[in-house]
């Protein structure tokens, strides 16, 4: 079981890299944002950000944006497309178990999400002296939980929507308002209080809050709400995804 999984993961990775659009939004676009706003605001500690700089706040926030891109766009459009084109159909006629097929896709998209975050951290460190006061393990755990929740959401979209095109439209309709209102592009601090109240209903807001909090060393206990929301999202979406999964 391991050999086909590794082979499939390797080929999926190559296929993903051959699609320049996906690579751009996961790897290049967040970096461009970092350099754009980094060059405007720098990374001086500001009272507005409780003593942290703009870049310190942006790196975990942009990471949340990458997670949303991977789950709502890359994964859902990819899965819906593979089903629509009959790629899943052909795989189904082999001895491969569906779990192996799906987990290799998730592995590749997760690896690309990690790569996106790593690029942000490296660039932030080199060019803006990025500060980090949390535990790497805690941030990694929160990153994993957030990614899985959004991947599950992506599988739900792929399961419910008939074609890659509709998955793309619906994914974008969810994605764009969410990245602007959740604090993953514009800091929550800069948003009017009405928007912030609304933002609490967006799952991505909880990813931003959790990652930013753990980034500056918050304890898990301060983020019970975020963890619960993301866990519920993960469990609910996994159940729905299993129900709505179709080979064709």
């Amino acid at each position: 079981m391991m050999r086909p999984f590794l082979k499939m993961t390797w080929i999926e990775a190559k296929l993903l890299l051959r699609e320049p659009i996906g690579v751009f939004f996961t790897l290049a676009f967040p970096l461009m944002m970092l350099f754009l706003f980094g060059s405007i605001y720098g990374n001086k500690p500001l009272p507005f950000f409780a003593g942290y700089g703009s870049v310190d706040v942006s790196v975990p926030a942009y990471t949340a944006m990458i997670i949303a891109t991977s789950g709502l766009l890359t994964l859902s459009i990819g899965m819906a497309g593979n089903r629509e084109n009959g790629i899943l159909r052909r795989l189904r006629a082999t001895p491969m178990r569906p779990l192996i097929i799906l987990s290799s896709q998730m592995t590749v998209i997760f690896a690309m999400t990690v790569a996106g975050m790593t690029l942000l951290i490296v660039a932030g460190k080199i060019f803006y002296g990025l500060r980090f006061n949390g535990s790497a393990l805690n941030v990694a755990a929160a990153f994993l939980l957030s990614s899985l929740s959004f991947f599950a959401l992506g599988f739900v979209l792929a399961g419910l929507l008939p074609t890659a095109r509709t998955a793309q439209v619906v994914g974008m309709v969810l994605f764009y308002p969410m990245i602007f209102l959740s604090g993953s592009t514009i800091p929550l601090e800069s948003l009017p209080s009405g928007v912030r109240a609304f933002a609490r209903f967006l799952p991505l807001t909880h990813v931003v809050t959790l990652l930013r909090g753990l980034w500056i060393g918050d304890a898990w206990s301060r983020h019970g709400t975020e963890v619960i929301v993301l866990l519920v999202l993960l469990i609910a979406c996994t159940l729905v995804a299993v129900k709505t999964f179709r080979w064709e």
Partner: peptide, 30 residues
């Protein structure tokens, strides 16, 4: 399943997969 060869009416491979990659991948299933 391992003893069957199947060619489906409406099936596909990823657009950008190379011929040898598809064969190598599917060979690993058996």
């Amino acid at each position: 399943r391992p003893q069957l060869g199947v060619q489906l009416q409406q099936a596909n491979l990823p657009e950008r997969i190379k011929v040898w990659e598809a064969l190598d991948l599917y060979a690993s299933f058996y």
